[in-house]
Amino acid sequence: MAERASSQLLPEQAGAAGGLDATEAVSRTRLVARRFVRRRPAVAGLVSLALLFAVAYLGPFVIPWQYDQLDTNAFLSPPSAVHWFGTTQTGFDVFALTMRGLQKSLIVGLLGAVMSTALAAIVGAFSGYLGGTLNTVLLTIIDLLLVLPSFLIIAILSPLFRDHTWLVFVFLLAAFQWMVTARIVRGLTLSLKEREFVTAARFMGVPTWQIIARHILPNMASFLIIDATINVSSLILAEVGLSFFGFGVQPPDVSLGTLIGDNAGAALSYPWEFYFPSGFLVALILAINLVGDGLRDALDPNAVFQGRR
């Protein structure tokens, strides 16, 4: 009974009973953007993210040091005008190192999240919609991957990408990230499948893949977007974890994980070696989480409107 005033009287619904008035067609994207912009923490997160991006990629052009360049005049020197973040024991500039690491994290997060969410969406949607043997096979694969300890597997495989591009590593990380989402996508597909507009399309003769691409996946776009943002921070942290123990990014390349790992012990005596990389890592995760939270509120506003914003 869609028209009945629901027992949970949402003011938005009460207002919407009026049907077509003089309002122009507000596209959903604009509506979401408007809601997002209203929340200050979310905007702060987005701005911080943009700044971190800028610093990570433009920063290295501003200073005269490369990340793998030694300054034999300054070993373990604290932050100064020459070396903004100080230097390490061997003479590397910490700022350059941090920026290089930050770049890595950004790539891991964004590329990995896109891969992971896309895979989860496709597997989950087809598995849920088609059912049958395909569903059983895919679910078994998902269960298997969930049971395998990803940390161990990726760590064991780390020598493989020692000689190749480190993107193999990103790929592996994403390969162990998509399973839980796929299960949820499957559940969402199962319930969307029974929705009348999907049945209507089926009874029109629309082929299966078109139904999934046109009706099912767009209607869980909010969930997919939110999940992608969560994946970004999970992947970044997974990379840090592996690199910390030496199983991820390999020397001479650096990531925030390797920096933290190498310098955790020295945190008391030479704090700049540890706190700058970790500080940037925390800032990055925080910014992503704020944006993710803001997106979640903008896409599916459940909170009662207080009239104060």
Binding site: S233, L237, V240, G241, F244, I260, A264, A267, L268, F274, S278, L281, V282, I285, L286, N289, L290, D293, A303, Q306, R308
Partner: peptide, 30 residues
Amino acid sequence: QYRLSDHLITVSSFVVLAMPTVVLAVLVKN
């Protein structure tokens, strides 16, 4: 919801969640 106590709790859990365990561990140890 939306009172000061809620905001405090939300903000602090945000910050803590943003800290990787290793960073938090080192901080606490030091």
